[in-house]
Design a protein around this nucleic acid. Sequence first.
DNA 1: CTTATTTCAGTGTTACTGACATCA
DNA 2: CTGATGTCAGTATCACTGAAATAA
Lengths: 151, 151
Amino acid sequence: MDRMADESPPTRLRTMASWLMTQIAVGADRLVGERLATADTRRHHYRVLAALDEFGPSSQAEVARNCGVHSSDVVAVVTELVGKGLVDRSPDPADRRRNTITITAVGVGKLRELDALLADVQDELLASLSPGERDELVRLLGRVLEHQRRS
Amino acid sequence: MDRMADESPPTRLRTMASWLMTQIAVGADRLVGERLATADTRRHHYRVLAALDEFGPSSQAEVARNCGVHSSDVVAVVTELVGKGLVDRSPDPADRRRNTITITAVGVGKLRELDALLADVQDELLASLSPGERDELVRLLGRVLEHQRRS
DNA sequence: CTTATTTCAGTGTTACTGACATCA
DNA sequence: CTGATGTCAGTATCACTGAAATAA
């Protein structure tokens, strides 16, 4: 039994930013998914609620742009949120192609609950970093993401 | 038409480390996947080759542990790599349950090619950061991943 | 005519689960 | 018996593609 290096990926991967971020993202996604599941919610639901809370009533296409969920997936997510009474979907009288999606009071309450839940997740995720390092990490990641969006 | 904030996710997401990393990972994964595809390779192939190069001949279970690819997926990946002549699979005479996987000379050459290709990807990914910032980011991500692995 | 929106059906990748046979 | 290994079949999630209907 050579059982060496159980937790040591190859050196070239350990210093490769894309690999580090993918690995962390996998773990973070799992953690986020588990926590949201305890509140009977999935990632997409949170994103849509957050976009509606911040940008106000929007068409589904706007929701898609505002939260990064693919527009063909917004359909099903909104349908589910409507079923839970967290958002309203009503036809836009000014443009009959569109639906206007609005977050309900219940939806806002749910969003606050999820905010708290996800704040805990961030704390766990970044537990090994000092507050200053966390800010620095978020700052650097923000720059990387911004650059990525422009490419 | 409210078409505001086309590229501006909700504030709470913009400063949430888990969201930032997920978003970047999605883009990085796509870029890595595209580049590897130009060399007729997928992520898993690279990971397995890198693990074999660094840790030497290994059983499939060891490969799985060393590169983070699920052991039930290693089977197919190794089969494909064998088909391309990049690795050898031979039964371990000392333990007849096991196969010993060894990277071939051709496999090492392919790995060098992929290393160069992925180095380019990292440069593009982190183009907006200075060398010092890149090191800092990798350092912080390494700490986060290490903590995640211990949880 | 072209473009935007909504909707649906389906795809490809990744990570994973469960089951099973083999063997130490 | 137990535990590790290799194998296979199948699942869940996500981002996405393509196409169609409707309407600006």
